[in-house]
Computed example of a mutant assay.
Amino acid sequence: MKFKTYKGTKVTVERVYMIGDKQFVDLRDPRNGHEFRSVPVTEFEKGAEAKEVVFEKDGHKQTFVKNSAGYKTFVKENKLNPLFIDNCLKGISKTHKGFKIYCQNF
């Protein structure tokens, strides 16, 4: 079980979901069972599951929340391979099909 920190409290992530292009999490304090529901990822610690993925090519930047509808459409339209995108996000490589790909944690 991985613990994250939210407002100084160690919590577990119970659920991650999206509403539109925004990602939310439900958290639980395992010590007392207190739940934090519908926490926007922007309020959650760095290193949370949600990430802004930046695709940069020819001086143009496009940013998407990973796995959002816009992200999936962009990947499909540009025939990008999710495995190679993940390699860029992990730092294994820097580019894929001419796109410099990197992430920005919320």
Rank of each mutant, 00 (worst) to 15 (best):
Y6I: 09
K7P: 00
K10V: 06
V11H: 09
V11W: 07
V13S: 10
V13N: 12
E14Q: 12
R15H: 15
R15G: 03
Y17E: 00
M18Q: 15
G20W: 09
G20E: 05
D21A: 04
V25T: 13
D26T: 01
D26K: 09
D29Y: 02
P30D: 09
R31I: 03
R31Q: 11
N32Y: 07
E35I: 06
F36Q: 06
V39F: 00
V41R: 00
T42V: 01
T42N: 04
E43K: 13
A48S: 10
A50G: 15
E52C: 04
F55R: 15
F55S: 11
E56S: 12
K57A: 10
K57T: 07
H60E: 14
H60D: 11
K61D: 08
Q62D: 10
Q62I: 05
F64R: 05
N67K: 10
S68M: 08
A69D: 14
Y71L: 08
K72A: 11
T73E: 01
F74T: 00
V75G: 03
K79T: 12
L80H: 07
N81R: 09
N81E: 10
L83S: 15
F84K: 09
F84D: 11
F84H: 04
I85Y: 07
D86N: 15
L89I: 12
K90G: 02
K94A: 04
T95K: 12
T95F: 01
H96E: 07
H96V: 14
G98V: 01
G98P: 06
K100M: 03
K100A: 09
I101M: 05
